[in-house]
């Protein structure tokens, strides 16, 4: 029986190890008398998560001028929604296990993803879009469909790799040849099944074909450009060895000056070590 989109995302667990914390936070938020300190207390019950949030809060990613010492301070500086997003994203990173190492290593896959998230956030900052951090989440998850492919269909993934070996075929094209759909569609199906917001789902779905996106076309163009920059910088590895071609219209759609390209690339280089340390410490020790 051929593998369908529905079939491939079946059995992917819906949330990772932090789902308990997230549910507890939601429950506390329903109580109108709750304060940030209550939320902080929930997070602080998990020393690993606490360390990770503080590390990120004190990193060059946010660049706050003074030192942050508590979870409540972190929440008040970066915002509650953002903290919830970061916890959710951390849990997604740890959700996928058992990828055949000859396909991709966890570290290199998430390095590519984190770098794309950082590039997307920096582009959003340059474009002065409110809440730029949602672009970090979208960039981080843009290739999540590949993680599903590697864990749920490793045999097909190996066939796809073989078709790309000559260097003339993009991995996404080989995915369509072998499966009938590509990793962006898998990501779309998975995030929709997880009830992620529509803008995020669309940014992942259209990161290779941003001009086909509807409501969130500009957002999709931004992820498309971020992915291109990170590929050009050869940061991490998601399975695609080539730099997937950039649609110049997507760049034009962002209406940014050419000088932004250099500052985004420099920004990613500056922040990557800090952000990797915050997100991948546990992934690295597991390996």
């Amino acid at each position: 029986m051929p593998l369908t989109l529905k079939k491939i995302i079946e059995g992917v667990p819906s949330l990772g190890s932090y789902s308990g914390v997230l549910h507890e936070i939601e429950a506390v938020l329903e109580d109108p008398s709750s304060t940030l300190a209550h939320v902080g207390a929930i997070i602080e019950k998990d020393p690993d998560l606490t360390a990770r949030l503080l590390r990120l809060g004190n990193s060059s990613f946010f660049g706050f001028p003074s030192r942050i010492d508590t979870v409540s301070e972190t929440i008040s500086l970066i915002g509650l929604q953002q903290v919830q997003d970061l916890i959710a994203v951390s849990s997604v990173i740890e959700l996928f296990d058992g990828v055949p190492p000859e396909l991709v290593t966890m570290e290199s896959f998430w390095k590519h993803s984190l770098a794309c998230g950082m590039a997307a956030r920096l582009l959003a900052l340059a474009k002065r879009i409110p809440k730029p951090d949602k672009f970090f989440v979208a960039g981080l998850l843009h290739d999540i469909g590949r993680m599903v492919l590697y864990t749920r269909a490793p045999a097909e993934a190996k066939e796809i790799y073989q078709r790309c070996a000559g260097g003339m075929v993009l991995m996404r094209e080989a995915e369509v040849e072998v499966l009938g759909f590509d990793h962006a569609e898998i990501g779309d199906a998975l995030l929709a099944a997880w009830n992620y917001p529509a803008n995020l789902v669309d940014m992942v779905r259209y990161h290779h074909a941003p001009l086909s996106a509807g409501t969130y076309q500009m957002e999709s163009c931004l992820i498309h450009v971020a992915d291109y920059l990170v590929h050009a910088m050869e940061l991490g590895y998601s399975g695609e060895r080539m730099v997937p071609p950039l649609n110049p219209k997507a760049w034009e759609r962002l209406a940014l000056g050419m000088d932004v390209v250099e500052s985004v690339m420099k920004g990613v280089d500056d922040q990557l070590v800090d952000v990797e340390r915050a997100f991948l410490a546990r992934v690295a020790t597991k390996a």
Partner: peptide, 12 residues
């Protein structure tokens, strides 16, 4: 690795 690179596009 720059597959389908087109230098007539300034961004490329």
């Amino acid at each position: 690795i720059f597959i389908r690179y087109d230098e007539s596009f300034p961004i490329h």
